[in-house]
Nucleic acid binder design. Structure first.
Length: 526
RNA sequence: GGCGGCGUGGCCAAGCGGUCUAAGGCGAAGGUCUGCAAAACCUUUAUUCAUCGGUUCGAAUCCGAUCGCCGCCUCCA
């Protein structure tokens, strides 16, 4: 039974969607005036994990994430850069979509944009006006908070408290300082749309109400976003939508904790941020996702270089097993019956963790338990039947890959790439020959040189295996060829012509021609 | 001023009334394997959960107070 902590009721509740097995989810997406930062990424990724887990549970999820493409910040930027606001929005919306993919987020079923829903927005505002919950002051339309008696139910605030301590900007047009804009009258030079109230653009909150309703219906199952959206954004969405429809807007509200830097909220205004782009240059999506998974979504996460590195180390452990499994699947032909291993136990650990309000840290722990125990199982059972590896792969795929997104079998370094791995095999053969001759200095030299190229050799019972670096494969080919050539030179200088000839023959088998010259050698592709 | 969150080992972090002498990751120490490594595995690394009181047969978990940190109330994921 899945339980979700609902911000609205402030307790964990059993998740019962309105129309099972369908589930509707709306997550507040980015305002596209700049690249999004790693703190924003946390919300998007945790939303993605929520979605993926519901799919794992067999629900048919419709997932919507809005893109706010008209607002004050975008307009400000467009003025600064002297380009139309639509251009600014387009540029950063594209960047967002690219980065979201790089972060392994499953694309939303719909990424609605405010500017493409002006009609729906106008219609919704009119409806609110008809119900008497909005008023028009000279082309500015405001929501009348006093008409909605549930105002404050999400954020736990009382109207009086808000009014007294308020830092709300004083606006003489508003009846009440808490009233907020539904439609903003266009100022000189601002983008605008025609409306019954004149030229203008939508207020911030109304787009979510309009687009959510349009794509998911009047009552949606889950609405999620960062903690800072509880008030006023989500509170206002409820007020608008419920005033218009008379129905409950959202069944379950989920809010994500902040990502902090040195214990302070990461934010554009404080300037203490890293963009997701920057971080992705140094760390993989899987690393970032594991880091996020290892903290509960609701709490704060104090981001640091040290922390992300420890996640990276942890990830290697999972990847190492995945690679081992992949290697076995390629070479193992033991078709004996599967030996007993309690896969079920790890599925149920994973599920009961995720069922408890998406407790991803505990779910990750279940995966680590599995990795440890399965590694041990391999060690204890020589020549395991292939089916065991299949089952293990299935476990990792369903949990680590499909739900948390911290693993991708198709990206493992041992699998396909353009680099000719025969070259590595040749080096391994040369190294093994040296080892047999107890020429450890040559053997170690080969290993060290490869290590410098981020190619790791590991001697195992069944022979030597290797791991390739995940990127820049092309540059490496040249370095590897140079290494092979210099080994051959050394062999020649020692009059070890057997080795030298072996190298030349093997290279030609791989399609390379090595030519000796006075001062060295030249290797060409045949 | 109003509202809310947090404080668990060297670091990160689950646990939220008994199975907790507290999961998992990182780190550290020792060991197995290895020519040496790497990987993997094994062992060790919190009788204690900010502090002080209280409730309870029983508390890291509930209540109160104190100290410290953070957030929202203005754009913000």
């Amino acid at each position: 039974m899945l339980q979700i902590y609902n911000t609205l009721t402030k307790r964990k509740e059993e998740f019962i969607p309105k129309n099972p097995p369908n589930v509707t989810i709306y997550v507040c997406g980015p305002t596209v005036y700049d690249y999004f930062h790693i703190g924003n990424a946390r919300s998007f990724i945790m939303g993605d994990i929520v979605r993926r887990y519901l799919e794992y549970k067999g629900f048919n999820v419709k997932y919507v994430m809005n893109i706010t493409d008209v607002d004050d910040k975008i307009i400000r930027k467009s003025i600064e850069q002297e380009v139309p606001s639509g251009k600014v929005a387009e540029e950063f919306a594209n960047a967002f979509l690219e980065d979201a993919l790089k972060l392994k987020m499953k694309p939303a079923d719909v990424f609605p944009r405010a500017t493409e829903h002006i009609e729906d927005i106008v219609e919704l505002i009119s409806k609110i006006e008809e119900k008497g919950s909005a008023y028009n002051v000279d082309g500015n339309v405001f929501y009348d908070v006093s008409k909605f008696n549930g105002y404050g139910k999400l954020s736990g605030k009382k109207i009086e408290d808000l009014e007294s301590g308020s830092r709300v900007e004083i606006n003489v047009e508003k009846k009440n300082p808490l009233d907020f804009s539904l439609w903003k009258k266009a100022k000189e030079g601002e983008p605008f749309w025609e409306s019954p109230w004149g030229k203008g653009r939508p207020g911030w909150h109304i787009e979510c109400s309009a687009m959510s309703t349009k794509h998911l219906g009047e009552t949606i199952d889950i609405h999620a976003g960062g903690n800072d959206l509880i008030f006023p954004h989500h509170e206002n969405e409820i007020a608008q939508s419920e005033a218009a429809t008379g129905h409950q807007f959202v069944k379950y509200w989920i809010h994500f904790g902040f990502l902090n830097i040195q214990n302070e909220k990461m934010s554009k205004s404080l300037g203490n941020f890293f963009t997701a782009r920057e971080i992705l240059k140094k760390y993989s999506a899987q690393t970032i996702r594991l880091l996020f998974s290892q903290t509960h979504y609701g709490g704060p996460l104090n981001f640091s270089e040290e922390l992300i590195q420890s996640a990276q180390k942890g990830l290697e452990k999972i990847n190492n097993l995945a690679e081992r499994i992949e290697r076995e699947m390629n070479s193992n032909s033991n078709d004996d019956a599967e030996i007993d291993f309690d896969y079920k136990k790890y599925y149920s650990e994973f599920e009961s963790a995720m069922d408890d309000n998406f407790n991803s840290p505990q779910a990750a722990a279940a995966i680590f338990d599995f990795v440890r125990d399965f590694n041990r199982f391999i060690a204890d059972n020589e020549n395991l039947p292939l089916n065991n590896f299949k089952s293990a792969k299935e476990y990792l795929q369903k949990t680590a890959q499909d739900v948390l997104g911290i693993l991708d079998f198709s990206e493992l370094t041992i699998s396909s790439n353009s680099f000719d791995e025969g070259l590595i095999d040749l080096l391994i053969e040369l190294r093994n020959n040296s080892k047999e001759k107890k020429d450890y200095s040559t053997a170690d030299n080969i290993r060290n040189e490869l290590a410098n190229l981020n190619i790791v050799l590991e001697d195992g019972k069944a022979g030597t295996t290797y791991k390739l670096p995940s990127s820049h494969i092309d540059d490496i080919e040249e370095s590897v060829l140079k290494l092979i050539g210099s080994i051959r030179m050394e062999a020649k200088s020692k009059k070890d012509f057997t080795s030298a000839d072996l190298i030349r023959d093997k290279l030609s088998e791989l399609g390379y021609i090595i030519q000796d010259s006075k001062d060295g050698f030249l290797i060409k592709r045949n």
